[in-house]
Design a protein around this nucleic acid. Structure first.
Lengths: 131, 131
DNA sequence: CCATTTACCTACTATGTCAATAGTTTAAAT
DNA sequence: ATTTAAACTATTGACATAGTAGGTAAATGG
């Protein structure tokens, strides 16, 4: 289940894409338009800046703006940054699958197939597809 | 992310399908074969019995057995019973989508499309496909 | 230069879920 | 009656979620 972190992040991206006017947008405006607590959004956009999705500009006239064009963001990239790996099971979320049962596991092929499908879906969708 | 409840449930089903011999199998045997705490499995199989996946037989010679043939169970049915709705977002997990933004939400079509894909995947897979 | 604006940072909290564990009771067969 | 095994009730520690509160740092307009 995608949590508010991932969902709000996508909404912030859409909001910025549709209200940019070339300049920075203060978080206060986004919070009001999206009806989301500004305090909570602060935590979320902080991670988005750290992850390279947004640029933050301090001081008067500051705010946030996209660092790329909307068609250059995949939804999968946004979700993985905010929610962690999109894996369906813990053993596939690890960098190396350390499960002792992996050689005999009768369900692993299904989870692998599923994860591939999910990955293709979200990395195929671009931010520009949602505008 | 699918939790141990769903994953263990599928493993119990597979174990029963492969070791039935027509009779009941005590949980102790399954727990030992699958290397899962019997106490924890008790909680899981209790819900599986309540949900109609298994039959439980008390007393000496008792245990658990499948109530249908393996090809008559879909993986989606097992997962939904153990994990709740397979929805990617909270608003689609409700029986009626009560989100006040649903009419203007720019992400809802994507979540709906994704959920349909997930549903088709897991309800198309049968227990017999994993044996 | 200074007040204002805005991002950025640290800490805290309430609630809920996950993955168990422990102990007791009921049901059925030998 | 004894044994076997399911079924039931309660509790626990760790972690994640969804926030809130308050303070610091940076940049700009006047």
């Amino acid at each position: 289940m995608i949590s508010t972190r991932g969902r709000y992040a996508i909404r912030v991206m859409i909001d910025l894409a549709q209200n940019n006017a070339g300049s920075c947008i203060p978080l206060k405006d986004i919070a009001e338009r999206q009806q989301i607590s500004k305090k909570y959004l602060e935590i979320i956009v902080k991670d988005m800046v750290a992850g390279g999705l947004l640029k933050g500009v301090s001081g008067k006239g500051g705010g946030y703006r996209l660092s790329r064009r909307p068609e250059e963001y995949s939804i999968g990239e946004i979700l993985e940054l905010m929610e962690g790996p999109l894996s369906s099971v813990a053993c596939l979320a690890e960098h190396q699958n350390t499960c002792p049962r992996k050689a005999v596991c009768q369900t692993l092929p299904m989870w692998t197939e599923f994860d591939q499908m999910v990955h293709d879906f979200f990395f195929g969708k671009k931010l520009s597809d949602l505008l």
